[in-house]
């Protein structure tokens, strides 16, 4: 395992709020040098290295591009891993979670487009609030538990957004 972080790789400071344009531009530049297309007549070993590096580059890019993944990765860099699956008590958020679940179920029955749009807007707003809150606390050692809680909430909102997308797809049939 190398100690170079994904942020180093893209020449970015390890932060939650990052320059996404720069991330994309640096990704494209790195991809040019490692993509298997550059090694079509190289030895088998070189081709394998290119495949491996390219896959790693894509994975790093994907991680930093997504705010949730980025937040989780930042905590991991600080030695604080957030396991993907774990049931954690978050009573404050629980009520909100249940409310959203209920709303989504109603929408799944009614298939009402205006309702879906306003639900998506709600999720977007919640997402923004989570991002803002995380930015406030992730660097503070005394608030790591809070930061972890926020990452879990982000994961929940992502999952819900994914379900809304599936609902939209189903309604499109």
């Amino acid at each position: 395992m190398s100690n170079t972080s994904y942020f180093d790789l893209f020449d970015l400071p390890p932060a939650f709020v990052i320059d996404l344009e720069k991330l994309a531009a640096n990704y494209r530049e790195r991809a040019r040098s490692v993509h298997p297309d550059r090694f079509v007549d190289a030895s088998e070993r070189e081709q394998r290295q290119a495949l491996e590096r390219s896959a790693n580059l894509n994975e790093s890019y994907r991680t930093l591009k997504s705010p949730t993944q980025r937040a989780r990765y930042l905590l991991a860099l600080r030695g604080h891993d957030v396991p993907l699956e774990a049931t954690v008590q978050d009573p404050e958020f629980l009520l909100q979670q249940m409310q959203w679940r209920e709303d989504l179920e109603d929408l799944q029955e009614s298939g009402e487009h205006a309702g879906i749009a306003s639900f998506k807007a709600q999720l977007k707003k919640a997402r923004q609030e989570l991002d803002d809150a995380f930015e406030q606390c992730w660097q503070d050692d005394s608030r790591l538990a809070e930061a972890e809680r926020l990452v879990r909430r982000m994961q929940f909102v992502d999952k819900l957004s994914q379900e809304v997308r599936q609902l939209e797809e189903r309604l499109d049939d």
């Binding site: 395992m1 190398s2 100690n3 170079t4 972080s5 994904y6 180093d8 790789l9 020449d11 790195r30 040098s33 490692v34 190289a42 030895s43 070993r45 070189e46 394998r48 290295q49 290119a50 495949l51 491996e52 590096r53 896959a55 790693n56 580059l57 994975e59 790093s60």
Partner: peptide, 19 residues
Amino acid sequence: AARRMDASVQAALAGRRLD
């Protein structure tokens, strides 16, 4: 060849190896 490739990517890529 491996050295050349390492040099071409200035920062080494972290992560799992397929090997």
